[in-house]
Computed example of a mutant assay.
Amino acid sequence: MSTQPSLEQLRFNMIEQQIRPWDVLDPQVLDLLATVRREEFVPPAHRGLAFVDMEIPLRGHPEEAIRAGQIMLAPKVEARLLQEVNPKPHEKVLEVGAGSGHMAALLAGRAQRVISLEIEPELVKMARENLHKAGVRNAEVREADGARGLAAEGPFDVIVLSGSVAEVPPALLQQLKVGGRLVAIVGEDPVMRTNLITRTGEASFTTAQRWDTVAPRLLHFPAPSRFQF
């Protein structure tokens, strides 16, 4: 007689079969994935998909949710974004696109403070409730247009865009501290690359193109530049 695998077995399988093979090897990241209960950030209707290698719609019709960017990113993508920016215990983080609050919970496990911006009121409520239930006290969710960032609270050590953009607005880069890092999935479907941008001086930045993936668009970010000079 077959028995259903336990949640802990499913979590272990997610880490070992999806995340670790995707070059997520930082032991602190792997430990967080084992302790932050991903299934508690998934809408009840989709809880059976919590550990599956896919994006999970957060509200309404699945296709509409994906078009509107109202999803949880696949586990391996969240894990690798976290590994790329490598938040430190003294650092302040800005996340754009709170979704269900899961990425904010992961970031809060590494950083001193996380502010997560979400434009959709229903998701603001969901993320706040999920973080509260999970006992995460150093992350807050604000209803705001993340494309503008949050200059009044900056500068930030880390900025994470939890979705894709055609390009990173200069206004967001200006909200990084010198030495700060911004990670974003940049490009046009079907070719997007994860960019890790580091502020190296008052007017200087370096960009490393790290790995290819595809993610739904974040709302209100600028369209791609049509002209190259």
Rank of each mutant, 00 (worst) to 15 (best):
D26I: 02
R11T: 01
K133N: 14
V183T: 13
E91Y: 03
V42F: 10
A144W: 02
V124E: 00
S225Y: 01
L131M: 03
R47I: 08
I19A: 00
K125V: 08
P75S: 10
L161F: 10
Q4I: 04
T35S: 15
M54V: 05
H132M: 02
P222H: 07
G146D: 01
F205D: 07
A215S: 10
R110G: 04
R226Q: 15
F221C: 04
A34C: 12
T35I: 14
A65N: 11
E91L: 03
F41I: 09
P43G: 15
E188L: 07
T198H: 02
L117E: 07
R20Y: 12
A34S: 09
E129S: 06
P43K: 15
G146L: 00
E140I: 12
L219D: 03
E167D: 14
L81R: 05
A139L: 12
V114M: 03
L218E: 04
R110Y: 04
K88V: 11
V124L: 03
M126Y: 09
V124M: 02
Q4F: 00
D212Q: 10
V178C: 15
D157E: 12
P222M: 02
G179L: 03
E143A: 15
A147E: 02
E202A: 14
L173G: 04
L49H: 11
Q28A: 12
V136Y: 08
V141M: 02
E63P: 02
T35E: 13
G149A: 11
V85K: 00
E63V: 05
R181P: 07
R59D: 03
E78T: 05
T206E: 04
V214D: 00
L182S: 11
A147Q: 01
L173K: 07
A147W: 01
E140C: 09
M54F: 01
N13E: 13
P57E: 08
A203M: 10
P216T: 12
V52S: 08
R128W: 00
A208D: 14
D53E: 13
